[in-house]
Design a protein around this nucleic acid. Sequence first.
DNA 1: ATAAATTATCGTCGATGGGCGATGAAAGGT
DNA 2: ACCTTTCATCGCCCATCGACGATAATTTAT
Lengths: 109, 109
Amino acid sequence: MKSRKCLTESEQRARPVPKSDRADAELAQLAWAVAHPARARIVRILLARSACVCGEIVDQLTLAQSTVSQHLKILKEAGLIEGEIEGPKVCYCVNQQALARLKARIEEL
Amino acid sequence: MKSRKCLTESEQRARPVPKSDRADAELAQLAWAVAHPARARIVRILLARSACVCGEIVDQLTLAQSTVSQHLKILKEAGLIEGEIEGPKVCYCVNQQALARLKARIEEL
DNA sequence: ATAAATTATCGTCGATGGGCGATGAAAGGT
DNA sequence: ACCTTTCATCGCCCATCGACGATAATTTAT
C-alpha cells in the first residue's frame, strides 16, 4: 500500500502549495505541546477528569512534582490548558478551543 | 466559554483514566514529527505534491540543504514519510497510514 | 503569628534540537 | 575514468528540553 510516485513537472506546477506559515506555526506549537508522553498523558487525565489538581496529576505520573509543574506550564503556554487557582491548589482543565484548533490543524493535513 | 470546574472526589473515582502508555508514546512520536514549522511545511508540500524530491523542497524552504535533509530524516524516522531512491534523487512521499495514525491519536483526545 | 499544604520557580546537570558549512557517498552522463 | 548532480552525514555551535532537589510563594488552618 504505497503512495504513488512523483508527479511530472507540469503536474507539479499545477498545484502550488499555498502559503501556510501561520498554520505551520500554530500546528507546530500545539503539536509540540503534546509531543511528549507525559504531556499527552496529562491531557488525557484532564479530559477524563480523573484529576485536575496538580497534586493528583503528580500522583499518577511517577515524576517529580517540579517536573509535572513544568509540563503543566508548557501546556499552559501553548494554550492547551488553563489553570484556575482554588485556595492553595490549582485546578487545571483543557482549553477546548485550543484542542479543537489542534485537531483542525492535524485534520487538514 | 470556560470549561467546568473540578469534579468532586467521588465523581473523579467514577472515571479512572485507562492506561495509555502506548497511545501516549505513539502520539508523542508522531506529534513531535510535525512539531516544527519546517516539518509541518514539508508535510504539506508532500501532500500537495508540489514537490517530492529533496532539492525541490529545499528550494521552497529558505533553509540549508543539510538542514532540510535533517528534517526529512526526522520525519522518516517517525514513520511519517518514506523516501524512494530514483537515480541520484530521492523521492519522498507521506506514509498515509502513519498520517492516519497521527490523526487518530489526536482525534481520540 | 505559626505551621502545614500546595504549587511555582530556581539552579544545575546531561542530553538533544536545530542551524550551518564542509565533506562523503551514490548514481548518471560524457 | 572523470565530472556533475543530488542527497546524506559529520562536526561544530548555541539554545532549549527534561529531569531533579531545594527553595520560594501563596493560601488555609490552628
